[in-house]
Design a protein around this nucleic acid. Structure first.
Lengths: 187, 187
DNA sequence: CCATACTTTCAGTAATTTCTGAAAGGTAGG
DNA sequence: CCTACCTTTCAGAAATTACTGAAAGTATGG
């Protein structure tokens, strides 16, 4: 009974989901995330159900290998979860449901992978330009002073950003809402 | 006189700058910015001086065409500026000096290019799933309800984020410092 | 400890992105 | 309106990144 009535609805649902998935994939690309990975996450998020690798590969028209690798990467980012069912061998995957939590995970991971190494490099650069490394008089040279100043500003900016992100992460869902309210009131 | 003393210093300065440039280029890639574009910006930022296209291409070992295209893209992002000198034909380029301002520009541009289109798509998806589009009973189907709920959460999240960014942008340098202090005190 | 039912890996290939260099396009001064 | 000097464009080449599919790996129930 349900099927006869539901068919056009399911079609429409599918269309809407596909639209979202495609757009999300495009956005991912411009943020350095490969399109398929973004699409898989969009799919799991939008259907709001656990899906097997087979269902994912069929729905997105991708190979088994591709699905497997990207599902694993998404698990490593912590934004989808593996999901065993007793009495079944097949594994299912589902997206975290809370958007705030999803973005916390992404921010935390990006900080660790990308901000931290840059901070380390800046520290190294500053060491290379210390008086002890290039001589006392030399450190006063205009070009050196300029570069040191720029390194300092960037370091300060990134340290402050990191602290802010730390707060976000530490406080996850309720914290984020709180932060936002504060921000909006502050101006 | 200066040159004899300064030579090793300049070498060391160059090394430190190159280290920063290379790392910044790597980070750019993982954020969806091509390496050369990130490197050019890193160079202009770190030397804190206007450079000509020729100087850029020589320093980074890239072709004239590549330099030209990426310098133009950076200008479009608003994070470097063209710089004519009276009595000279050659153009010079320099980075914005304020890190907070640089990131404001980047955030504003990304919002416009990437967040806004996604928001538009979400609105479209929700329309496709309204009662008027699929029938009153159908709208109650579990799968439809779930997807609508997810679309709604994502839209809310992005709208709030956009508002926050708006504030950042509108307030630029002093505003950002203010925001940060508030945030850090809030917990 | 085998058969089954899945998952992961990875070498080769396809698709995409980025870069080059030469030609065409400005433009300012003469 | 030329010449000298720079900048931009873009077709083709190079480099990078993503994907496939088949073989190898793993775990579970009998």
């Amino acid at each position: 009974m349900t099927t006869e009535i539901a068919e056009p609805v399911n079609q429409q649902l599918r269309l809407a989901q596909d639209l979202f998935i495609r757009r999300w994939g495009e956005m991912g690309q411009t943020w350095g995330i490969n399109r398929t990975m973004a699409e898989i996450h969009a799919l799991l998020y939008i259907v709001a159900l656990p899906l097997s690798a087979d269902e994912v590969m069929e729905r997105l028209n991708i190979s088994r290998g591709n699905a497997s690798m990207n599902l694993r990467a998404l698990c490593e980012w912590g934004i989808i979860r593996r999901n065993h069912r007793r009495g079944e061998r097949r594994e299912y995957f589902e997206s975290l449901s809370d958007v705030w939590e999803i973005f916390s995970m992404i921010i935390a991971e990006r900080k660790r992978r990308e901000m931290d190494p840059v901070l380390e490099t800046i520290r190294q650069c500053r060491e290379m330009l210390e008086e002890s490394a290039i001589g006392k008089g030399a450190a006063k040279e205009e070009a050196v002073r300029m570069t040191r100043q720029r390194l300092g500003s960037m370091e300060e900016f990134m340290l402050v950003s990191n602290k802010v992100f730390q707060q976000f992460i530490g406080n996850a869902r309720s914290g984020l809402h709180k932060v936002v309210k504060l921000l909006l009131k502050a101006f």
